[in-house]
């Protein structure tokens, strides 16, 4: 087992708590030019993701990577979740996984 490199569930609000660390966030792509992607977190905050290929606008993408600052993630891995995704559940999960139930995740 390797527990050395976890990725914390984050939304826009929680991202600043993990600067320099590995995070995973779901963003809805608003604008994507192949280098920088601007998107919306599941708690409706603007996030910038570097290292994503071009993703169709409005698609939900999960990115895992290092949080560079309050709004920027350097993506290492990404998964296109498509156009339909329950952002509320994901947002709640981010809050739970960073709150009372953090011990189950990190």
């Amino acid at each position: 087992m390797d527990m050395s490199n976890p990725a914390a569930f984050v939304n826009g609000e929680l991202l600043p708590n993990y600067i320099g660390k590995r995070v995973r966030a779901v963003v809805q792509v608003l604008q994507s030019d192949g280098a920088v992607t601007i998107g919306k977190s599941t708690d409706d905050r603007q996030l910038t993701v570097r290292g994503l290929p071009q993703v169709p606008p409005m698609n939900y993408v999960e990115v895992t990577g290092i949080a560079e600052n309050n709004q920027l993630i350097n993506a290492e891995i990404w998964t296109d979740f498509g156009k339909k995704f329950d952002i509320n559940s994901n947002n709640m999960l981010c809050r739970l996984a960073n709150g009372e139930f953090k011990s189950l995740f990190l």
Partner: peptide, 28 residues
């Protein structure tokens, strides 16, 4: 520790990911 899997299926609906972790919390 390791897992001997008897079923592995690709996730098709990605809400299942959120669901699974919420399910973990619920079970906990």
């Amino acid at each position: 520790k390791q897992v001997v899997a008897f079923s592995i299926r690709p996730v098709k609906n990605f809400d299942e990911i959120s669901f699974h972790f919420i399910d973990c919390i619920h079970n906990h």
